[in-house]
Amino acid sequence: MNIIEIESGFQEKIDKDIRIEPRDWMPDNYRQTLIRQISQHAHSEIVGMLPEGNWITRAPSLRRKVALLAKVQDEAGHGLYLYSACETLGIDRDELVEQLHSGKAKYSSIFNYPTLTWADMGAIGWLVDGAAILNQIPLCRCSYGPYARAMVRICKEESFHQRQGYEIMDTLCKGTPAQKAMAQDALNRWWWPSLMMFGPKDEESTHTAQSQKWGIKRFTNDELRQKMVDMCAPQADHLGITIPDLDLKWNEERGHYDFGEINWDEFWAVVKGHGPCNKQRLEARIKAWEEGAWVREAATAYAAKKENQMMSKAKAV
């Protein structure tokens, strides 16, 4: 078989919805695209712990605190499932971490915004996790087996994240005027960055067409963004707070909400590293990695010592 036959055989498998597994032949670009996407996703889970970690010690009740702790722990877990899935493509963990720290690999820009009040925990769960779920559900059917399997686990766990966020918003909105104002303020700050999570407009998205052909992506950025708006508008109505978009209105003819234009200058600025917290987030990750070095070394030394003990015991017998 020549390379053209092999490639068309690969595309045939994808078209028949047969999953690709780690040791199967795959085009180099398919591999590189997945490494980029899965690692970016893993890094997002890991960096995503930082904005919420900021509020664990200041959660307003024990119920909220255990929920937030569990959510942040899930995010660590999700990062680990995804790093493992990524490693099946032939890149090792240290290299992935190095790419995050050097800025070569990206993570979701949403985590470069600060969490200023407790209501931000509500808005993040409701909007950011809501957007993540819309992005992730189609990935459960992604053509690459290990990624799809990781996404199934993640989606199952993620639905609690969204609900706990909405519950926080609902509680604040039923509280004092000051509490409701806090919820409104959080919605004002998180709405547009949440819509940006779906990426650039379809006509500017460089990877969409190829990723759709390869069965990595099932919906376009704009399709998912529309779903997000359609999902959130009635939820905001229920809370009795207002989405900060004067152009937002139901379009009977389309059967969808119309909505305003994203500030794309802000979008690209944050992607390029000029968001409010880009520097702080990366510094926190690098610090955690460097200050954890002694733990990794100690565990390695302990493992070696135990192995030596076993060897010398075996010799004595």
Binding site: S84, A150, R296, A303, E307
Partner: peptide, 10 residues
């Protein structure tokens, strides 16, 4: 799934 660890117990 899989994970990294220093030894089997870990």
């Amino acid at each position: 799934g899989s994970l990294h660890a220093a030894d089997p117990q870990m």
